[in-house]
Computed example of a mutant assay.
Amino acid sequence: MRYAVEAFDKETEFLAFEIDLPHRCDAHLAEIMEWSSPQRGDEGYTLSCGQLAAIEKLVGRAFYDPSYIFQLTCNLS
């Protein structure tokens, strides 16, 4: 599974940037997102501030900016 955080500009709603998450982070994301079942590969989730902070820690870098709406995408790769 390929996971990415997508940042959309709040004014234009255009994709501003995307951050790929580390491979094999499924277990960590399941805990952060409180998933009770495996992902299918076509999901998208709007992230809360708490979820964003946990994902920033997982990635090892800060990227939050209040100008953007952040979503987590799950895709088969």
Rank of each mutant, 00 (worst) to 15 (best):
M1A: 07
M1L: 08
M1S: 09
R2I: 04
R2E: 09
A4K: 05
A4H: 00
A4P: 01
V5L: 01
V5G: 03
E6W: 05
E6N: 14
E6V: 07
A7D: 07
A7I: 04
F8A: 00
D9L: 01
D9V: 04
D9C: 09
D9I: 01
K10M: 08
K10E: 07
K10R: 12
E11V: 12
E11A: 13
T12F: 13
T12A: 11
E13G: 00
E13C: 01
F14H: 04
F14G: 04
L15G: 09
L15D: 07
L15R: 12
L15S: 10
A16N: 11
A16C: 08
F17D: 08
F17R: 06
F17E: 05
F17M: 05
E18N: 09
I19S: 12
I19G: 13
L21N: 02
L21K: 01
L21M: 01
P22T: 03
P22F: 02
R24S: 04
C25W: 03
A27W: 03
A27Y: 03
H28N: 06
A30D: 12
A30S: 10
E31S: 15
E31N: 13
E31I: 10
I32K: 02
I32Q: 05
I32A: 00
M33P: 08
M33Q: 06
E34P: 02
W35Q: 13
W35P: 12
S36D: 06
S37K: 10
P38D: 07
P38T: 01
P38G: 04
P38E: 04
Q39H: 09
Q39K: 08
G41C: 13
D42N: 15
E43H: 11
E43Y: 13
E43R: 11
G44D: 10
G44L: 06
Y45C: 08
T46Q: 12
L47C: 12
L47I: 14
S48L: 06
G50W: 10
L52V: 13
L52F: 10
A54F: 10
A54I: 06
A54G: 12
A54P: 14
A54S: 15
I55L: 12
E56M: 12
E56V: 09
V59E: 11
G60V: 15
R61Q: 14
A62T: 10
F63D: 07
F63N: 09
Y64C: 07
S67C: 07
S67T: 04
Y68G: 03
Y68A: 07
Y68D: 03
Y68K: 00
Y68I: 01
I69R: 14
I69M: 07
Q71T: 00
Q71M: 01
Q71D: 00
Q71A: 00
L72F: 06
L72C: 06
T73K: 03
T73F: 02
C74Y: 05
L76Y: 02
